[in-house]
Design a protein around this nucleic acid. Sequence first.
RNA 1: GCCCGGAUGGCGGAAUGGUAUACGCAACGGACUUAAAAUCCGUCGGCCGCAAGGCCUUGGGGGUUCGAGUCCCCCUCCGGGCACCA
Length: 924
Amino acid sequence: METVPAAAGYQPEALEPKWQKFWLENKTFAAVDCDASRPKLYVLDMFPYPSGAGLHVGHPEGYTATDIFCRYKRMKGFNVLHTMGWDAFGLPAEQYAMETGTHPAVTTQKNINRFRQQLQAFGFSYDWDREVNTTDPQYYKWTQWIFTRLYSSYFDPDLNRAMPLALLEDALSETPARKTEWQDSAYLEGTHQGFLGVKKEQRNELRANLLKHMRLACMAEVPVNWCPALGTVLANEEVINGRSERGNHPVVRQPMKQWMLRITRYAERLLDEGENLDWPEGTKDMQRNWIGKSIGAEVDFAVAGGTEKIRVFTTRPDTLFGATYMVLAPEHPLVGALTTADQEQAVEAYQEAAAAKSDLDRTDAKEKTGVFTGSYALNPVNGEQIPVWISDYVLISYGHGAIMAVPAHDTRDFEFADKFKISIRAIIRPDPKAAAKEGISVEDVMAGKACWTGDGEMVNSANAEVSLNGLDVDAAKKTICDWLGARGIGKATTQYKLRDWLFSRQRYWGEPFPVVHMNDGSDKILSVEELPLLLPELADFRPTGTMDPPLTKAKEWLAYTDPGTGAKGVRETNTMPQWAGSCWYYLRFIDPQNTAAGWDKAKEKYWMPVDLYVGGAEHAVLHLLYARFWHKVLFDLGHVSTPEPFKKLIHQGLILGISYKDGRGFLVPNDKVEASGLKFFHKETGEELTEFPAKMSKSLKNVVNPDEVIEKYGADAFRMYEMFMGPLTDSKPWNTAGVEGVYRFLHRAWKMIVGSDGALSAAIQDAPMTREQERLLHQTIKKLGEDFETLSFNTAISQLMIFLNEFSKCEPRSHRAMELFVQLLNPLAPHITEELWQRLGRKDSLAYAPWPAYDEAKLKLDSLEIVVQINGKPRGKVTVPAAADNAAVEAAAKADEKIAAQLAGKTLVKVITVPGRLVNLVVK
RNA sequence: GCCCGGAUGGCGGAAUGGUAUACGCAACGGACUUAAAAUCCGUCGGCCGCAAGGCCUUGGGGGUUCGAGUCCCCCUCCGGGCACCA
């Protein structure tokens, strides 16, 4: 291969494109499927949404980190799978398309081309033959296929896993044909017996209802988050404080028939099986909170003078004796039946007001509101009549949409009872120490003047059959649950905050559902032979202005005739949310060209799980929880071999921009700021401003464009700067001046090896190294290996700088040392090192050169410098032979002139010697 | 309110309980140059001192230890997440 003509020095603009082309043409980074001769390593980046704005400096941070890791691991002999693709369905492309009249497919392709070009300019070692694009029909064919698997499965509560729905169908027949396949499931056995137990004429209905209800993907009329501005519904996770995550538009609650994915069935497994993952503790914690497991009890309250029962969930069954009222959510189905004539007007008015409130209004409400229904319930532990209220502080979507209120021991109930003058009865005497710490008076609690939610001693909690008095909270819970269970009015149970995943959107630019609504009322799911179901070409893909999705405009596409039976139907017009494509892309990378399956099983078994997954913390619950859910379903159905997809997860920190604020704390866009010396002033007002790091944003004008940085300093400098800024997982501010530092380093590295004439520097010879040079070299090899393993690139770079500072001074310079330096630097700065490798006389690419080994013996010193402390303060240093024992070191310390002077007249009490490090003389 | 992170020079940051401030940036001084840039050499936490040297210093306060940036308790501030989930 030719070298870049370089009479001048280091020219990244010439050599970087040259090596990028070389890698691409030679497929240097192609991963080899099922290669048993090498250990495999699957390193995954979160693939980007190819926006019109192009790459920003945040994207390459994680990508650079994984690239360094992959390059290092290839040199260590690993068969590395490292890939890139495009998460290209979604709202922005569609909105841009509406503004400009361009089809989203056109914009998407354009953006992808731009992103690919930008990413290739960084020299990332992706296997580009495995690129995927979620909007490619050959990709979304399999997204649709996974949906059909969800649709055709149910979650077996007995086996705690997904099973083919066909088995449930089989159990729902008079003469099951596949019983051998499902005899392990007590659930199916029970279902079968139940089926046989109902009258023949009711069996069809039972079967139809159960099949519809049990599917992991099913349609349901549910209150959804409708965003009028976006013209679509949103998942709970996409709504922040009652506004859309994207665009910050108001969101209202609206009942609609929608596709739901039964992620709640996996709540326990998502919780359990996530526990041992090598993920950031904070992220696991966020998922735990999101799933929101609560252990408690459900209890039935009879209605006084009625036949209805009000079922509540409580985490504090121990406080049953303190329940003085009940609250139903305004939407609770029993509200109508419980409302008395004289309360009817007030109740209906309240229900209407609650329905009209947006989620934002509802959560923002500072004061509790509510209305009495006029009815009373009977407290099951003491038969007492307690009033039943409705209030929007009780949510219809959690538990049973109703609560027993214990104002003495729940802050929300206390607030409510206090406002509406409902009686407050203390039944826990607060633990005096705990109460004192909280600043709460035990007497106030006992008098109903204060609320106590902590532990203590149960009082006033007994009836003829059971007494909790004298117990602590935990013991009381257990005792009362046993009693409730024995009476058949309650039992210990568990609730989760996690809701089912709302899976349809009223958009054009997404995967069409492979479903037809047949004229006879049944749904038909398309077989894999009928996939992909292509998104129809539409001239007008804007929202319809109603709740009908844009696909209702595709008249020809809508009509369906069953090729077998000739039965007619209409296609589903919703599309899937953007998360769908990203839920399984890591599986497609394994086998991206496969037309017969989403992926080949043998390849899946070889590559999975993903060994390292790097991406932003903003996906901590959404993408990462959805993907785990899909993966578990696929695992249960035998399509993948691991229960979890991502073994180790890392979040790169945010790269912040430099920003400015004035005295009042208001942010000033960077184009309004003027520097004068080391201070900053407002161009218009002249006010002095303070500099601080803030998220990069268009409005602050502090966005750094990576293309410009590469143009000026090259990709190697860019990569190294982002890694040198600080620890990968920390947020850190971008400072372009800092790029100069690593740029200088690369220049000096070039000059250490290449002479001013472009040939190998005359100083480089086959010369032996000094003892010190050898030691530094081996230290550097050791440090780089350790730091690369732990992704500590900032300290790895420091060590290379130390090496360069020393070796660039030396003459002659060992040819071998230069080669090793180039190898160590290669993962960080792949372009310059490939070039230097050639200048050093090597013909092959560096990419698979074996990683250097260090020699422990070469790290040893002949003599050591030992710190001498007196009473823990460093007072001097002595040099001793490396082999010196503690006594010799101690003697040397005492013999030191300065130390001896300071010891004079004092009594030596104790000597602590840390071998090879220090001696601490404790004196009086 | 609750749950996670974090706080070290002018700045980004380094430091298995063992010499705090490695490495880089900025700044300052010098060399080279007619000059500038680039490059190279040097200085660079604070206070006292002519110096030798001493004292102080890892957000604040306590504690454990021969020894604490690191471990424990309390507090302040900053960042992120959740938020009427019974």
